[in-house]
């Protein structure tokens, strides 16, 4: 099996306060905010502006995410 080249790429994590501060300091169009939970969970509550892409659909829908912008995933 071939391992994707960015398989071992480090992904940084942010605390809740860091995310809140980031969202205060940036406009929604300047970053991607992706909710990878299930639709039922999203429906109950989600961070305003979050785009729902359930984790099982990421491969098929990765083209919906702008690679030029920072991406926050939860």
């Amino acid at each position: 099996m071939k391992v994707p080249s960015d398989y071992f790429k480090k992904v940084s994590s942010m605390s809740v306060d860091e995310v809140k501060q980031f969202m205060r300091e940036n406009e929604p169009g300047e970053y991607n905010l992706i909710d990878v939970r299930q639709p039922e969970e999203y429906e109950i509550k989600h961070i305003p502006g979050a785009q729902l892409i359930p984790v099982g659909q990421i491969d098929d829908r990765a083209n919906e995410v702008n690679p030029e912008r920072p991406t926050i995933i939860y």
């Binding site: 969970e41 429906e43 961070i47 785009q51 939860y74």
Partner: peptide, 16 residues
């Protein structure tokens, strides 16, 4: 999400 304790929106993606 459980730790968020901030503003939240409700409803499915097509909500509204």
């Amino acid at each position: 999400m459980n730790a968020w304790e901030g503003l939240v929106a409700e409803g499915p993606p097509e909500s509204g």
